[in-house]
Design a protein around this nucleic acid. Structure first.
Lengths: 232, 232
DNA sequence: TGTACATCAGTGAACGCGCGTTCACTGATGTAC
DNA sequence: TGTACATCAGTGAACGCGCGTTCACTGATGTAC
């Protein structure tokens, strides 16, 4: 982002909103969502704290903007992973490759930029929407949309059974999201890369295996355990 | 926890450490890990801020204690779920039931007590251990041990293939941990219980299916995607 | 059984910190005429 | 082309907040003799 600051004199920054956002991203990278605070963002942008209020209503407003950008970058990382390897000719293989690539991109991003990743899933509500309807961007975030699109494609090409499709993106997401949380919560510091890769591989196998097996009819174990939300 | 405060006069509390811990749990319940602060815990225990330092070295020390207790309660919830339904005679069915019950207990706890759940997985390092070795209690926490024990039993009784066992507890944990995160991040507020139960059921199917399918030999999709930690 | 005294577990005031946010303001910019 | 003026985008000082933490202290407790 270029800042025409010098050319415009010191008083009018020229692109302060962007500068604050960029500073906010830096803060998130270093310290996660808690670290995204107005005063520090203003300081790093070389501006008085008050100036920030010309561009963001309050601290939460800035945090939300940073969060959205974090989710966009996460989606970009997934996209990049998808095009980093060649497609497979065989549709079932391509299905496996895509799911794997998306998961890998997700995890790579989380591990490379934990602070930004955590900020993408922080609680900052959309200030433009009444709180009750603001669902923090998970269900309508770009990464989620990518996963859903991929599964749709797989169903359309006949690789994925329709029964396996339902809620599949949530289940698959849960695996990589949970794995990211676990790895970041210290496991990644404790184990060597060789082991970590095995854990990732194993977990992604679980997703693919889970999709492949969904068509099979088995005695449902669901009835043997109490539901969290009882029917009716 | 009984507090012999009145019987001992106001000056000496008698069980302040416990009272502070209890207050800390209440704070965590209401506001998550950020809300666990010394001054508030002292206030709620009816004591001056300074008094807390007789029992905890600093704020982080208290937070860590609350975190441990949170993980213990999570484990208790899983245990409760396991004994809430009758065991199945058929070993494979019992395997499915156990995995399902543990996951359900995990999720039920997370949904009923989000603040405490989040505190159980917050960053507070064990103050008694040098930071680099402190892995935040995931790998050696009671819930993790329960899952590992269950899988060991299943392998011993021949239901679970040894290949499926390796890292299985991490993969399975990832599913429910990630699902908890997603649900708490707004999805649980957005969807009706009927849908939520389907999502949970589907995700737990994925785990069981993933274990069942692990023994099958398939062309490994692993090579079609870049590893996060390259071999060598 | 009584008493001197160490120790334990609290008090209360104070410090510095960084934050969010508001106030009255001012310098720069652009536009109507 | 020049100028008055509205508007825009900043400044700087100040407020109140709650926190972590330290200091010198004091009231209660228990123990040695």
């Amino acid at each position: 982002v270029d800042t025409p600051r010098t050319s415009r004199g010191a008083y009018h920054h020229g692109d302060l909103r962007n500068a604050l956002l960029e500073s906010g991203l830096g803060l998130a990278r270093k310290g996660g969502p808690e670290a995204v605070v107005l005063r520090a963002a203003a300081r790093e942008s070389g501006v008085s704290p008050t100036a920030a209020y010309r561009h963001f209503a309050n601290r939460e407003d800035l945090l939300y903007a940073v969060k959205l950008e974090a989710l966009n970058r996460l989606a970009a990382a997934m996209e990049a992973e998808l095009s980093a390897t060649a497609p497979r000719r065989e549709p079932a293989e391509e299905a496996a490759r895509r799911i794997r690539a998306l998961g890998t991109g997700y995890l790579r991003f989380a591990l490379e930029d934990p602070g930004l990743f955590r900020t993408g899933f922080c609680d900052a509500p959309n200030p433009a929407i009444e709180p009750a309807r603001s669902y923090s961007g998970v269900l309508d975030s770009p990464p989620f949309a990518m996963l859903a699109d991929t599964l749709d494609t797989l169903v359309a090409s006949g690789v994925l059974a329709a029964e396996a499709r339902e809620y599949g993106e949530l289940a698959a997401w849960a695996v990589v999201h949970g794995l990211a949380g676990i790895l970041l919560d210290g496991v990644a510091r404790m184990l060597p890369g060789r082991e970590l890769q095995k854990i990732v591989d194993r977990s992604l196998d679980l997703v693919i295996e889970g999709f492949a097996g969904a068509a099979a009819e088995r005695p449902s174990a669901r009835r043997w355990v109490r539901p969290i939300w009882p029917a009716g």
